Amino acid sequence: MRIFRRRGFVITLAVLVLAGLALYLGNSSTLAGPEAGRRPFLLAHRGLAQTFDLQGVAADTCTATRIHPPQVSFLENTVPSLQAAFAAGADAAEIDVQLTRDGRLAVFHDATLDCRTDGVGTVAEHTLDELRALDLGYGYTADGGASHPLRGKGVGLLPTVPEVFAALPGRELKLDLKHDTPAEGAAVAAFLQTLPPDRLAAVTVTGGDQAVAAVADRLPQVRTSSKAIIKRCLLRYFGEGWTGHVPSDCRHRELIVPIEYGKWLWGWPNRFVARMREADTRVVLVRYVGDWSAGFDTPADLATLPKGWTGAIWTNRVDVIAPLLTR
């Protein structure tokens, strides 16, 4: 009987070792290696514009009053800013979308106007013509208000979503919906439905769960992402990804992954990115400063990327990053 017990133990141990080896071989990023000839996909956050210090930022902080001394002359979410980002090497650009009082799709980030502009109130309280009259560069300062280097340079620059698409034919765009309402999602979907299929293939829509769902219900062919989508995908992948299978909840999506959390995903980084790419899902890597997502904007930031990273990275300074990746 002792011999049989010993033999059973050896067989069990062998099975466990083989299972562990198979698990390792099937999910080893080192063995998979990076995809040859690929560099990171560059997502330009709000185009090419001003950056600011995230240390100490709270939900109600006016970031325009804490910018770094300007190194570029552009204002975020404007057509010149987006054109400059693509000229510098961006693969896609993210814009922020809000509905105006007269139902237009304005491209603007903040909840209120009084931080960056010379206006007050919200986008939803103004017509597009009223918003166009504002100076988008009014509030920017790098020295506590002693000077305002961009004041007077943003009058009339606030664009609509259709104007951005018209100004950037053939370019890939990500629309971030700032208000989580079905009405905002429906308005975005109504515009997107006017685009040809090849243009829709280069569109991603992100935002709150309700707004994004309103787009996805009408346009399932558009890549989408929200907190609920990402949560469903990653929870299912955590349970199933060890097999190499990509769950349906992870297909045709955009996944925002903080660099600190990637190591918990099966096949991270190279095999994971390759699996998601095969499922038509883009993995966008972000880093965090405090509670806020930050871009990969400096050589030091790039040094923190996983070796051979070929997924997407989120950047505010594509003009700095693109040349480094090219070299």
Rank of each mutant, 00 (worst) to 15 (best):
L265R: 01
F86C: 05
V212D: 00
I259H: 02
P149C: 08
V203R: 11
C62D: 15
H245K: 13
G33L: 13
R251A: 04
F191P: 03
L99C: 01
V10W: 15
D297P: 06
R317D: 12
C233L: 06
P69Q: 10
A187R: 14
E278S: 01
W314P: 02
D60P: 07
S147G: 12
D249F: 07
H45Q: 01
P159D: 08
M1F: 04
V205L: 04
A87G: 02
A36M: 02
A294D: 10
L219W: 07
C115N: 06
L200P: 04
G311R: 05
G103E: 10
D291C: 03
Q98V: 05
Y288W: 03
A85K: 07
E260T: 01
E130S: 06
Y140V: 12
L195A: 07
L177E: 07
L25Y: 14
F4H: 01
L324D: 03
I229P: 00
H109Y: 13
T100L: 11
V155F: 10
W242F: 14
P149E: 08
W268E: 02
G244M: 13
I11D: 12
Q98D: 11
H252M: 05
L219N: 03
Q83I: 04
V222D: 01
M1P: 00
L42I: 08
L134Y: 14
A58H: 15
V212N: 07
G290V: 02
G170R: 08
G121W: 05
D53K: 09
P149R: 15
V123M: 07
D135C: 06
G267N: 08
E240N: 00
G139I: 15
E35A: 10
A142F: 04
L105G: 09
T298W: 06
I11Y: 10
L158K: 07
F272A: 03
C62R: 14
D297E: 08
Q221H: 01
A312T: 03
L25P: 08
A146S: 13
V273N: 07
F165S: 05
I230N: 12
D297I: 06
T181D: 01
P162H: 09
D129L: 08
D53R: 12
L25W: 15
A92C: 11
L13G: 12
G139R: 12
Y261D: 11
D135V: 06
A201I: 09
R39I: 12
R271W: 07
R38M: 15
S81D: 11
F52M: 09
L75G: 00
K178W: 15
V286G: 00
G290L: 04
D291S: 13
A49Y: 10
R317H: 09
A294I: 00
L99A: 11
A322Q: 10
P247L: 12
L324F: 00
A44W: 07
L158T: 01
I321F: 06
A36N: 08
L158R: 03
R7T: 13
D91R: 07
Y140D: 06
K227W: 09
R46Y: 13
G241S: 09
L16K: 09
T63A: 06
E94D: 09
Q50H: 14
G241Q: 05
R7A: 15
W266P: 01
P197R: 11
P80Q: 14
T310R: 03
Q98R: 15
A216H: 02
V79S: 03
F4Q: 14
K178V: 07
R6P: 00
R2I: 11
P162I: 13
E125L: 04
A142T: 10
A22T: 08
A59Q: 15
I3Y: 13
